[in-house]
Design a protein around this nucleic acid. Structure first.
Lengths: 108, 108
DNA sequence: GCAATACTTAGCGTTATGGCTAACAAACTT
DNA sequence: AAGTTTGTTAGCCATAACGCTAAGTATTGC
């Protein structure tokens, strides 16, 4: 099974899927709701939804003939966590560099 | 030309490329340095590097026969920015929900 | 019951992705 | 000058991704 970050980043690399997420952060929506703004065949959009569900970014429940989708924050946090970690290391490096520069400066 | 977020997220969806980023946040490295930990043919790794360069996550300079790569923070910030935005909307929604719950509670 | 609605499944075609090998080019080393 | 190191280019293969249409399955409304 591939890393969770793999599938989360991959899912978010598609503009249609990001648009779906952007919609869902404002609240739950049905499949038709989600499809409406996208000039795209329904099965195609459904597949995007499935990608989002597979990586855990979206969950859904079907009631009658209507499926309602909602967002799941977990994977977004994972992604944000990874980015935050990189930023910290990066900034740590900058700190060390400026500390080094400061040391060099003092030694002159 | 595709959205910058598309290519940044796509670039980060591959574990090899994330590993390269994880290495580069600690400081610049040559192509060989970057290739060393990955049991992978050099041209394959070069292509990963090219993907990272194409989306602006990595830049490199060649001196003699050695190419040195360094990270570029911009695209990472873009990605983080998008995530942050979603989180804000999401949390805003929660705030409104709890406010609503509070109102309902008071009205009883 | 019949028709419309809201998905859902199946299958097709094109393009992109991630891996490889083989062969080439340029720059050090000896 | 010859050989080693460090990329680089070209091309092949297999799989996955993204779009479609057509046809099927439940629900719901009339």
């Amino acid at each position: 099974m591939a890393n969770k970050l793999d599938s989360a980043f991959a899912a978010l690399s598609d503009p249609t899927r990001r648009a779906i997420i952007e919609r869902l952060v404002t609240g739950p929506a049905t499949v038709s709701d989600l499809a409406a703004p996208h000039d795209m065949a329904l099965p195609t959009l459904m597949r995007h939804l499935k990608v989002l569900e597979t990586c855990g970014l979206v969950r859904s429940v079907k009631k009658g003939r209507v499926r309602t989708c909602h967002i799941e924050a977990g994977p977004l946090m994972d992604v944000q966590g990874w980015l935050e970690w990189q930023r910290r290391v990066w900034e740590g490096r900058l700190d060390r560099l400026s500390a080094l520069a400061h040391d060099i400066d003092r030694s002159n």
